[in-house]
Simulated assay, not measured.
Amino acid sequence: MSIAIPARRPVLADLLPAHRLRDATLVVAGAATVALVGQVAVPLPFTPVPITLGTLAVLTVGGALGTARATLSLSLYVLVGVLGAPVFAGATGGWAAPSFGYVLGYIPAAACAGWLSRRGADRSYWRSAGSSAAATLLVYAMGVPWLAAAVGVGIREALIMGVLPFVAGDLAKAALAALPLPTIWRLCGERPGQR
C-alpha cells in the first residue's frame, strides 16, 4: 500500500511576477511580518512563555511563501533575533529566554505550512486549518524541551507550563491563519480542487 502525495502546486507567492529580487524581497518581508505581528504579546504570571501572535504570522507566512522561502524567511528572523535585534515578543532578542525553543520551532512550522500549501492545503479552509494545526505542533515540539531545560523541570511540568495554557489560543490562531489563503485564491479565481 502506498500513500499518494498530491503534486506540487504554486503557492500565493508564485503569483507575483518573477524577477531577480522577488524571492529575496518575499523572504525579508516574511521575516519582518513575523517580527512585527509577534510583538503582540501578553505575559502570563504562571509561565515564562507569553501569549503572542507570532505563531499566527508564522503559519500565514509559511503557507503563502512555500517551503523554501518560508524556511529562509524564518531562519532570517531567528538569526537576526539571536544577534540581538529586538524582533522577538516584547521587543527582545537573544537566545537565552525560556521561550526561545518556541521561536526555533517557527522554522519547521513555517516549512511545514509551506510544504502543505504546495500540496494544495491552502486552497480550502478546512485543509488550511489542518495544515496550520499540524505546523503548530512543531512549535510545541521544539519549545517544550527547551522550556524544560531552561527552567529545570521535567517534560510533564513543561507541558503544563508551555502547552496547556496555549492550546485553545493556538487552535484559534490556526483557524484564523486558515482564512486568508483560501480567500485570496478564490479572489484570484481558483476554487478548491483546481490546479
Rank of each mutant, 00 (worst) to 15 (best):
A91H: 13
A70F: 12
A57Q: 03
F46N: 02
G54Q: 15
V37S: 01
T33E: 00
V80Y: 03
A29I: 07
S117L: 08
P17S: 05
R118V: 03
A113E: 11
T60E: 10
A64S: 12
A41P: 02
G84C: 03
S73G: 12
L79E: 00
S124W: 08
A110V: 12
G93Y: 09
G114Q: 12
A109S: 15
A110R: 10
G114D: 12
P17R: 11
V11N: 05
G54S: 15
A35V: 02
L104D: 10
W95N: 00
G30V: 05
Q39S: 02
A97K: 14
L72N: 07
A64I: 09
T55R: 01
L53C: 09
G93P: 05
R22P: 05
A121Q: 05
A29R: 06
L16P: 02
G30I: 06
I107D: 10
T33G: 00
P43C: 03
A13V: 03
L56R: 01
L83H: 01
L36D: 03
R123A: 10
A85F: 04
L53I: 07
T55D: 04
A32K: 01
W95T: 02
F88K: 07
L21Q: 07
R69H: 13
L36G: 05
V37R: 00
G81D: 07
L74G: 03
A24D: 12
R20F: 14
G63M: 14
T71V: 15
G62P: 04
Y125S: 02
V27Q: 04
G94E: 00
V34P: 02
A18P: 02
G66M: 13
R22D: 13
A85L: 15
P50L: 05
V27E: 10
V37T: 03
P48A: 13
G120V: 09
G30A: 11
P108N: 06
V103L: 13
A35L: 07
G81N: 07
G30K: 03
A29T: 12
L74C: 06
A35M: 08
R9W: 10
Y102W: 13
A109F: 10
S124T: 13
A7E: 15
G90Q: 04
A13C: 05
R9K: 15
T92Y: 02
D14H: 13
A91V: 01
V42Q: 03
G93W: 06
L72F: 11
S75N: 06
L12K: 09
Y125D: 04
Q39D: 02
R123E: 13
A24V: 13
R118Q: 15
T52P: 02
L15G: 08
A35W: 01
L12W: 12
P10L: 11
L56H: 04
L65D: 04
L74F: 09
T92L: 09
P45W: 10
A111M: 13
P50W: 05
P98A: 14
A35D: 06
A31E: 08
L12R: 08
L104V: 14
F100K: 04
A109P: 02
V11Q: 07
W95Y: 14
L59M: 08
G54F: 05
L53K: 04
L26G: 09
V78N: 00
L12N: 11
G105I: 00
F100W: 12
T25K: 01
P43N: 07
R118Y: 07
F88M: 10
G63A: 14
V82R: 01
A70V: 08
G30R: 06
A64D: 06
P10G: 10
G38T: 11
